[in-house]
C-alpha cells in the first residue's frame, strides 16, 4: 500500500518530465478522479462511519468541509488543478505546500479501516493529476532541481505517513470513525469542487 501511494506521485512527476501532458488531458484525469473520489465517499466511507452508533458523525462531516475550505484558501486550489504561476518566484510558497501536504496526509488516514481497496485506488488516481500539477508548477517557477525533488518527495511521503500514523498512534486509532467523518467532509468538498 505504501508503494502504491508513492508510485502515483512518481508516475505523475515523471510523466511531466517525459511528456508534457496537455491541459485537456489533466482536466479529464481530474474529472475522473473527482468522480471516483465522490463515489468512494458516498458508496463506501459514508455507510462505514454510519455503522457506528455515534450521534455526532454529521457534525464531523460538516467540520471536514469547513477545514477543506480553509485549506483551499492557502493552497489556492492546487487540488483541483488551478495554479497561477508567477514566473521566477524566489520564495517557496510554504503555505501552499503545507496545506497541500496536510491534504495528502488526511487522505491517508481513512485507509487503515478500509477492507477493500477501492479507496486506495481512488487516492492513487487522485494523486496523479495533483502531482502533475504540482511538478509543472514547481518547474515553471524555476526552483532549483534539489528544491523541486525534495518537495515532490515530501509530498509523496505525506499520504503513507497519514496511513502509518492512523494505524499506530493510539489517539488516531481510537477516534478513527470521527476522523474518517472529517475526511468524508474534505472529500465531499474536493470532489464536488473538481466536478
Amino acid at each position: 500500500e505504501f508503494f502504491v501511494l508513492i508510485l502515483s506521485v512518481i508516475i505523475g512527476s515523471i510523466s511531466v518530465l517525459i511528456t508534457k501532458p496537455s491541459k485537456k488531458f489533466i482536466q479529464i484525469l481530474l474529472t475522473f478522479s473527482g468522480a471516483y473520489l465522490l463515489s468512494v465517499t458516498i458508496l463506501h466511507l459514508l455507510p462505514e462511519v454510519y455503522e457506528m452508533n455515534t450521534k455526532n458523525i454529521g457534525l464531523f462531516i460538516l467540520f471536514g468541509i469547513l477545514i477543506q475550505s480553509i485549506l483551499e484558501n492557502f493552497s489556492k486550489g492546487v487540488e483541483h488543478g488551478h495554479v497561477h504561476v508567477h514566473k521566477h518566484v524566489e520564495k517557496v510558497p510554504w503555505l501552499l505546500l503545507i496545506s497541500l501536504g496536510l491534504h495528502a496526509f488526511f487522505e491517508g488516514i481513512p485507509l487503515s479501516n478500509e477492507h477493500n481497496h477501492s479507496l486506495l485506488w481512488a487516492i492513487f488516481i487522485h494523486k496523479i493529476p495533483i502531482s502533475i500539477v504540482l511538478t509543472t508548477f514547481l518547474i515553471q517557477s524555476k526552483f532549483k532541481n534539489i528544491v523541486i525533488i525534495s518537495i515532490v518527495i515530501l509530498f509523496a511521503l505525506m499520504t503513507p505517513l497519514g496511513f502509518f500514523i492512523s494505524n499506530t498512534v493510539y489517539i488516531f486509532t481510537k477516534y478513527l470513525t470521527e476522523l474518517t467523518a472529517i475526511i468524508i467532509g474534505i472529500f465531499l468538498h474536493i470532489s464536488t469542487i473538481i466536478l
Binding site: 474529472t31 475522473f32 471516483y36 463515489s39
Partner: peptide, 16 residues
C-alpha cells in the same frame, strides 16, 4: 462530452 464519460466511469468503477 469527454468529461461526462469520465464522471460516469468514475462512478461506475466504484459501484462495481
Amino acid at each position: 462530452f469527454k468529461k461526462l464519460i469520465a464522471i460516469l466511469l468514475g462512478f461506475a468503477i466504484t459501484w462495481v
